[in-house]
């Protein structure tokens, strides 16, 4: 009787490894291929190691950014007290905020018009709006510079903002248009049918549907503006240095942890914005997904 009671658990344990035995990899289970797992890891390291090291070395207690000397917050303090860097940061924030606001509204209107209406030169306008997306930035920069020179407009924050709005609008328009492609037009008809006028229908029905697209478009416009170098370089004047241009000029002397610290701040800022945007999109997207 004793042997029998023991025999059963042994038997059960003995069967367990067979259940856990390596299952054959099914044709579509690519994630279980060893070679692809290695490739995936390599890609992740390649993409993220530079960023991780940049952040890590911003805490390095050394004038040169070559060897690890010890942990410190000194360079954050230093960067904060660097008047030029400080000013450039403020400039970048002003430019990014204003250009995001304007380009999101204008781009949304353009995207909505392209989704909604059929008009004579629609095909032409359709291709033309994506021009700023495809042409090389340096050409955009030269064109902008030539334009402002032509109308004799002094270069400064205004010219940077105008240029940023110009290249952000198409991105927003494309995002909004893609969002609207899944819109059920009978929602608008239902709203009208229930007694709402055009404006009420837009405000109550169409706009809430657009929100995830607006958030995505605004985020795109903001980050594009924040890290734009080439076009900004061409259209900035004296006293309108932006953050990326300032960092570039600092790097030309030497790569100090101060530069790393400033860049880390920028990374944290954009990451935070992205997380907020994704949260907003997730919340309104959840209800919108099910028709």
């Amino acid at each position: 009787m004793k042997t029998e009671t023991i025999a059963q658990p042994v038997n059960a344990v003995g069967r367990a490894p067979r259940l856990r035995a390596k299952r054959r990899i099914l044709p579509l289970e690519y994630t279980r291929w060893r070679s692809l797992q290695v490739l995936l890891a390599a890609i992740f390291i390649f993409l993220y190691f530079p960023i991780v090291s940049l952040v890590a070395f911003s805490f390095n207690n050394s004038k040169r950014n070559v060897t690890w000397q010890g942990f410190t917050f000194d360079y954050y303090v230093k960067a904060y007290h660097n008047a030029g860097l400080h000013e450039a940061f403020i400039h970048s924030m002003i430019i990014a905020s204003v250009s995001t606001l304007v380009s999101t509204i204008a781009g949304a209107m353009l995207g909505l018009a392209l989704y909604r209406f059929r008009f004579g030169l629609k095909g032409f306008v359709d291709g033309w709006i994506s021009l700023p997306i495809v042409i090389p930035e340096v050409c955009m920069g030269v064109a902008m510079l030539a334009f402002f020179a032509l109308i004799d407009f002094p270069l400064g924050l205004t010219t940077i903002i105008v240029s940023h709005i110009a290249f952000s609008i198409p991105f927003v328009a494309v995002v909004i248009r893609a969002r609207m492609a899944g819109f059920d037009e009978s929602l608008e008809e239902a709203s009208r049918d229930l007694g709402a006028n055009q404006l009420q229908t837009f405000w109550n029905i169409t706009l809430p549907y657009m929100v995830p697209g607006l958030v995505a478009g605004a985020l795109l416009a903001f980050t594009l503006s924040l890290d734009d170098f080439v076009i900004t370089f061409f259209t900035s004047g004296p006293g309108s240095t932006t953050f990326p241009i300032k960092i570039y000029s600092m790097v030309r002397f030497s790569v100090t942890p101060e530069v790393n610290a400033a860049s880390t701040v920028l990374i944290v800022l954009t990451l935070t914005l992205t997380v907020i945007a994704m949260a907003i999109q997730g919340r309104s997207g959840k209800h919108m997904a099910a028709k």
Binding site: L187, A190, S284, H287, M288, K291
Partner: peptide
Amino acid sequence: NMVFQSYAVFPH
């Protein structure tokens, strides 16, 4: 008033 084929219930 109309009841639409897709119902058109406002999702939000």
